Simulated assay, not measured.
Amino acid sequence: MKRPWLTEPISDEEDAEITAAALSDPDNPPLTDEDWARMRPAREVMPPSFFEPVALPPRRFFMAEIDLDVAEHFKNEAGEGWEARMNDVLREVIARRKEAAE
């Protein structure tokens, strides 16, 4: 079975054209042997915090019935990513209720 998401291999001519275009780019010259020799592992040059895992809050997909006008409001207000915006608004409501209860 053919996997439609895989690209076909490029020809030698296409590969040569791509390589020539990359080599002619003055903003991105190819690395020299000296450049490669100067390179060090990222762990030697980056702070340890760079390698700490990012802890995201756990998420769970679930279905919820939301009135159409509410969903349309968020879609129109936030556009793409409206579900995340709705999540943010709900989180704000939770925080306000916790503050009010204290």
Score class of each variant (00 low, 15 high):
Arg3Thr: 05
Thr19Trp: 08
Ala55Ser: 08
Thr19Glu: 14
Ala16Asp: 05
Ala55Asn: 06
Pro4Val: 04
Ala22Leu: 15
Asn87Val: 09
Leu31His: 10
Ala95Asp: 15
Thr7Lys: 00
Asn28Tyr: 03
Pro41Leu: 05
Ile66Phe: 09
Asp27Tyr: 15
Pro30Met: 04
Val93Tyr: 12
Pro53Ser: 02
Ala78Asn: 05
Asp88Thr: 09
Pro58Ser: 05
Phe62Asn: 09
Asn87Tyr: 07
Ala84Arg: 04
Glu80Ala: 15
Asp12Val: 00
Asp69Arg: 10
Met39Asn: 15
Ile94Gln: 10
Met63Pro: 07
Ala20Asn: 00
Ala20Glu: 11
Trp36Ile: 10
Ser24Lys: 10
Ala95Arg: 09
Arg40Leu: 01
Ala37Val: 04
Ala64Phe: 14
Asp35Tyr: 06
Asp15Cys: 06
Trp36Glu: 10
Met1Ile: 08
Asp35Glu: 08
Glu102Cys: 00
Thr19Gly: 07
Ala95Ser: 13
Val70Ala: 12
Ile94Leu: 12
Asp69His: 09
Lys2Thr: 03
Asp35Cys: 09
Glu14Phe: 00
Pro53Val: 00
Asn87Gly: 09
Ala37Gly: 06
Thr19Asp: 14
Arg60Tyr: 00
Pro53Ala: 00
Gly81Phe: 02
Glu102Thr: 01
Glu44Phe: 13
Glu99Ser: 10
Phe61Ile: 06
Ala55Asp: 12
Pro48Thr: 09
Glu80Lys: 15
Asp35Arg: 02
Ile94Val: 11
Met86Val: 11
Pro29Met: 07
Arg59Met: 07
Val45Met: 12
Asp27Thr: 15
Ser24Thr: 10
Gly79Asn: 12
Phe61Arg: 13
Arg97Thr: 09
Glu34Cys: 06
Glu77Met: 11
Ala21Tyr: 13
Asp15Pro: 02
Arg38Tyr: 13
Ala21Leu: 11
Leu68His: 01
Phe74Cys: 12
His73Val: 01
Met46Pro: 02
Asp88Phe: 13
Pro57Arg: 05
Ala20Ser: 05
Arg3Leu: 04
Ala100His: 13
Asp12Tyr: 04
Leu23Gln: 08
Asp35Trp: 05
His73Cys: 03
Thr19Cys: 10
Glu52Ile: 02
Asp27Lys: 15
Arg60Trp: 00
Ala20Asp: 11
Asn28Arg: 04
